[in-house]
C-alpha cells in the first residue's frame, strides 16, 4: 500500500490505456456521426447517377442527379414561390396547432369534465386519415387557404395537445402540495408550476407537429388539386407530373424533404436552447 502511494506521488499523471482508447473512440464517434451519413449520401447520389448512365434511362423516366440540380436553377422562379406558399401554410398551421393544442390542454387541466368530454374526439380526429377528411373540408370551406390550413392543423395539433396535457399533469405531487400550503391561486399554479413542468413535453410535441404540419400542408394540397397562381410545392409536383417533367418533380420532392429537415432542426435547436439550463435531455453529460 505504502509503496504504491509513493509511486503514484512521484510519477507524473499518466492517462491509462483504457481511458486513452475511450477518448479516441469518443472522437471517432463524433466525426462518424456526420461523416457516415455524408458518405452514404454521396454514394447514393453516385449510384443513382451511374444507374441512369449505365442503363441509358431517358430523363423523362429517371433524370440523373445533375439534371435535377440543373432544374433547381432553371425552375427556381417556379419552385421558390411554391416553396413560400407551402411554408406559409405550414407555419400558419403550426402556429394554430400550438395555440389550439396548448389552449385546449390548459382547459383540460382546469376542468376534468372538459377533458372527459373532448379528448375522445381529439383522438378520433387524429386517427382519421387527413386525406379522407380533406375532400369534405374543401366542399364546405370556400377559401382554399383556409381549407389547407384546417387540414394541416388537424394533423399537427394532436401531438401538441396530448404531450402538453401529459406535461401539465406531470408536475411533482409534493410541489403541488407545497403550492397549496403557500396558498397559491389556480393561475399561480399554472404559471409557476404546471407550464414550466410541461415545457419539455410541449417541445417534444412541437418537434413532431412541425413535421406533421408540413405533411398536412402537402397532402391537403394534393387533395385540393387545381391551383394556378399561389399554389405550393405539392401542386408543383402534380403539375410537373401531368407534363411528364420528372426532373422538376424530383426537385420539388427534394425541396420538401430539405424543408422538413430544416423545420425539425430549427425546432430541436429552439428546444435545446430553452431546456439547456435544467432539463436532462438538453444537459451535456459531465464525467
Amino acid at each position: 500500500m505504502t509503496l504504491r502511494s509513493e509511486e503514484s506521488r512521484t510519477s507524473p499523471v499518466v492517462v491509462d490505456q483504457e481511458e486513452r482508447q475511450r477518448a479516441v473512440k469518443a472522437r471517432i464517434d463524433k466525426i462518424g456521426s456526420w461523416l457516415m451519413p455524408a458518405i452514404v449520401m454521396i454514394a447514393a447520389v453516385w449510384f443513382w447517377d451511374r444507374i441512369v448512365v449505365w442503363n441509358e434511362i431517358p430523363h423523362y423516366i429517371l433524370p440523373g442527379p445533375g439534371r435535377v440540380l440543373g432544374s433547381f436553377i432553371e425552375d427556381w422562379r417556379i419552385l421558390f414561390p411554391a416553396l413560400v406558399v407551402t411554408l406559409q401554410i405550414t407555419f400558419m398551421a403550426l402556429a394554430v396547432a400550438v395555440i389550439g393544442g396548448v389552449g385546449l390542454s390548459v382547459l383540460f387541466t382546469q376542468s376534468r369534465f372538459v377533458e372527459m368530454s373532448l379528448f375522445p374526439y381529439a383522438v378520433i380526429l387524429q386517427v382519421t386519415p387527413v386525406v379522407a377528411i380533406a375532400p369534405l373540408i374543401f366542399i364546405y370551406v370556400d377559401s382554399r387557404i383556409v381549407g389547407l390550413l384546417i387540414c394541416a392543423w388537424v394533423v399537427a395539433f394532436f401531438p401538441v395537445l396530448s404531450n402538453t396535457t401529459l406535461g401539465l399533469n406531470s408536475a411533482d405531487h409534493n410541489l403541488r402540495d407545497l403550492f397549496r400550503i403557500y396558498g397559491a391561486t389556480r393561475w399561480q399554479r399554472l404559471r409557476f408550476l404546471q407550464l414550466p413542468a410541461a415545457l419539455p413535453y410541449f417541445l417534444g410535441g412541437l418537434r413532431i407537429a412541425g413535421g406533421l404540419a408540413l405533411i398536412g400542408a402537402i397532402v391537403a394540397e394534393f387533395v385540393a388539386g387545381t391551383g394556378g397562381i399561389g399554389s405550393g410545392l405539392a401542386f408543383t409536383i402534380l403539375e410537373a407530373g401531368y407534363r411528364l417533367n420528372i426532373t422538376r418533380m424530383f426537385a420539388a420532392l427534394i425541396l420538401i424533404a430539405v424543408t422538413g429537415v430544416i423545420i425539425f432542426t430549427v425546432l430541436s435547436f429552439i428546444s435545446h436552447m430553452l431546456l439547456r439550463n435544467w432539463h436532462e435531455s438538453a444537459v451535456k453529460k459531465e464525467k
Binding site: D172, N174, L178, F192, N277, W278, H279
Partner: peptide, 10 residues
C-alpha cells in the same frame, strides 16, 4: 419532504 422537491427549471 423526503425528496428535495425543487423546481428543476428554477
Amino acid at each position: 419532504f423526503q425528496e428535495p422537491t425543487l423546481m428543476p427549471w428554477a
